[in-house]
Design a protein around this nucleic acid. Structure first.
Lengths: 101, 101
DNA sequence: CCTCATGTTGCAAATTATTGAAACAATGCA
DNA sequence: TGCATTGTTTCAATAATTTGCAACATGAGG
């Protein structure tokens, strides 16, 4: 499951699917890759249980499942931002150290 | 960050670090790889802000940071188990379909 | 049936990640 | 200082992933 989340394009696709369902050709156009590439990324997300697909005539719509993935991404974002802030503060402390008392 | 979680050995290391801090050589022995390999995996976890290290004499202890990673792993576990259950139920439904009324 | 549009799969090339040995750095201790 | 222990880095080899083209599959609509 974490492996499915370990590619920027797949993360972006999940964020896009947060808005609404999209078909393969739409997502392929959005991220600018061949439809086969988009299809393979989506099938990985599906295998991880993060999305589901439904055939609508000649096209296949993918939609977001696994609501907790949203919590996870928010958690990851919070953690990353927190780390960044901590790093900046550490640098600032070195540049102009606060008085010890 | 998800990339840092995208390797079984690193996941296992994080679970181990949940118990208590361990030094590189201990973790290397536990997972059965060269210390250089363990060191590199741990440095990836550190770069992602998931662990932190502290030098104790000649050895380096790694400890778990980023408490939300625990929530994330639990969330992932719930999702994976849920998917597995859904798949089994789908198979069972095909094998002996429930009455429609 | 034929054709078009959309998706998936197979394949090989390109990219990226992982591994382990060896060299190097840092610490503790006699 | 000399030596042993522990970690990190460097490097080449190996393994895994990603990519795009081509071939194939499926459904819609003449």
């Amino acid at each position: 499951m974490f492996k499915a989340l370990a590619h920027p394009m797949r993360i972006y696709m999940l964020e896009k699917l947060r808005e609404r369902p999209w078909c393969v050709c739409e997502l392929a156009a959005i991220v600018g890759v061949d439809k086969s590439v988009a299809s393979k990324h989506l099938s990985q997300l599906k295998a991880a249980g993060l999305v589901d697909d439904e055939r609508r005539g000649t096209l296949v719509e993918y939609r977001l499942v696994a609501p907790c993935v949203l919590d996870m991404s928010e958690c990851a974002e919070r953690t990353i931002l927190g780390n960044k802030r901590a790093r900046l503060e550490a640098i600032a402390a070195v540049a102009s150290p606060a008085p010890l008392l």
